[in-house]
């Protein structure tokens, strides 16, 4: 259903119908914005980069052949734009990925609901995820924050499922090391 609806919209857009573009943007703006936000951890960047992705869709829709679904294509464009941005940023600023975050004792384990409202914990989670290398952060975000399957992620990133799993494993290990105070003892 969703796929058909997108195909119709894409076809209308290819014929030059601006309204079809509006509909696609309105349908996907939240997902694309939050994806960019998860990757950049910055609202101004997320707005800028997510809109850049839609502009790219608009300008290169004639090159979309429908071999993958529209949203896979859209995600791929967004992820590539964000990855480029992150790589440029990483070059400017060397971050230590293994630096450990010092934490106050929080009993999140026996009371997960409280963790949702614990501001310090939430900030530390954001910091830990944000410190991952771009590729690992992307795979991790698509899996755990966007809920995509390994296969979908592989298709979006143009890599193998094995590589997706390897990135997930490394990301999780790094997060564990950074968040040791929460998960050990």
């Amino acid at each position: 259903m969703v796929k058909n609806e997108d195909t119709l919209l894409v076809n209308r857009l290819k014929k030059g119908e601006r309204k079809a573009f509006d509909e696609l943007v309105n349908k996907y703006k939240k997902r694309i914005y939050y994806l960019a936000y998860s990757l950049t951890n910055n609202h101004a960047d997320a707005l800028d980069l997510s809109q850049e992705a839609f502009i790219k869709v608009y300008k290169s829709i004639h090159r979309f052949r429908g071999r993958s679904s529209f949203y896979t294509w859209l995600y791929r464009i967004t992820v590539n734009i964000c990855l480029n941005h992150l790589k440029k940023k990483a070059k400017r600023k060397e971050i230590s990925f293994d630096e450990r975050i010092e934490v106050a004792q929080v009993d999140w384990w026996s009371n997960p609901k409280k963790a949702l409202e614990n501001k310090e914990l939430q900030e530390n989670l954001t910091r830990a995820i944000d410190s991952l290398p771009p590729q690992q952060k992307t795979v991790f975000t698509l899996r755990h924050l966007e809920g995509l399957s390994h296969k979908e992620i592989a298709s979006i990133l143009g890599c193998s499922i094995g590589s997706v799993k390897a990135n997930l494993f490394q990301a999780l290990q790094k997060l564990r090391n950074r968040l040791k105070g929460y998960v050990e003892g």
Partner: peptide, 17 residues
Amino acid sequence: TLVKTQKLVRLKVREEM
């Protein structure tokens, strides 16, 4: 520790616009 980490990161909430 990895199981715990995965459970922990899933508690991350996103601020809605």
